[in-house]
């Protein structure tokens, strides 16, 4: 048995929304979870079970209300929002459910969006974007508005954007929810390639095509904000 180094480590994590108010929601309860470097982990659960909250927590969108959370070796609890954001843009690449591509921007402009607040020059942005566009076969569309390209191309733009900062962790929220099976397969192929490049991937899904994919190392079931199965690294 090989013990892998955890890239994400959550211990006794609780997350509340509107804590102390009448409309308080206890979204995550006693979460203990480890994700090792190079894994593809799938979070599975019904709507409202806390999958997205857990994904956001791992994505440094917010810290835990209590417990300890470490991502890429960095403790998130008590980290101010500004540092969380800074850490997020260096460490995490996001792929959203609807891809969240800005329709009025060109393909290239969408891909380099995370680089703008980093003070990266236009030349360097282009140098970083071009290999990614080439890799995902969208370089011929780089000047097209996002609203003018196909769904499959949008999906590849979203992946390229998630990789533009070369983050070690990729998080994807229901990435196949609105895709047909061929597109879903294509997306999974891309994620598998990323895993082979050394990326750690966590995604939420209840699509069997994802949960039963041979390259998915673990499926973690979440019910009512608790992990019911699969929280720790096996091998």
């Amino acid at each position: 048995m090989t013990i892998k180094i955890p890239q994400i480590e959550l211990s006794e994590v609780h997350k509340f929304y509107n804590q102390g108010q009448d409309n308080e929601v206890h979204a995550l309860k006693e979460i203990n979870l480890q994700v090792a470097e190079g894994e593809i982990v799938c979070l599975r659960g019904p709507s409202g079970s806390g999958k997205t909250t857990l994904l956001c927590l791992m994505g440094c969108v917010f810290g835990p209300s209590s417990g300890r959370a470490a991502v890429g070796g960095q403790q998130l609890q008590r980290m101010p929002d500004e540092y969380l954001t800074r850490y997020r843009r260096e460490t995490i690449g996001f792929i959203f459910q609807h891809f969240n591509i800005l329709p009025e921007l060109s393909v290239e402009q969408n891909i380099v969006l995370p680089l703008l607040p980093l003070g990266i020059s236009p030349k360097e942005r282009q140098q970083r974007a071009e290999p990614l566009m080439e890799r995902f076969g969208i370089e011929h569309r780089k000047l097209f508005k996002a609203s003018q390209i196909s769904g499959g191309e949008l999906q590849r733009v979203a992946i390229a954007r998630a990789l533009i900062n070369n983050p070690p962790i990729i998080l994807a929220d229901e990435p196949t929810a609105h895709l047909d099976s061929s597109r879903s397969n294509e997306l999974m192929d891309h994620l598998v390639t990323l895993r082979r490049d050394g990326k750690t991937i966590v995604l939420t899904s209840h699509d069997p095509l994802v949960t039963e994919h041979p390259e998915v190392t673990r499926v973690i079931d979440i019910q009512d904000g608790r992990i019911s199965c699969g929280g720790s690294i096996c091998s």
């Binding site: 929002d81 500004e82 954001t85 800074r86 997020r88 969240n100 969006l113 703008l116 607040p117």
Partner: peptide, 16 residues
């Protein structure tokens, strides 16, 4: 609102 949410998710700060 959607645009701001996306930008913030991609690492833009409130100040940005």
């Amino acid at each position: 609102q959607q645009e701001v949410g996306i930008l913030k998710m991609l690492g833009w700060q409130t100040g940005d």
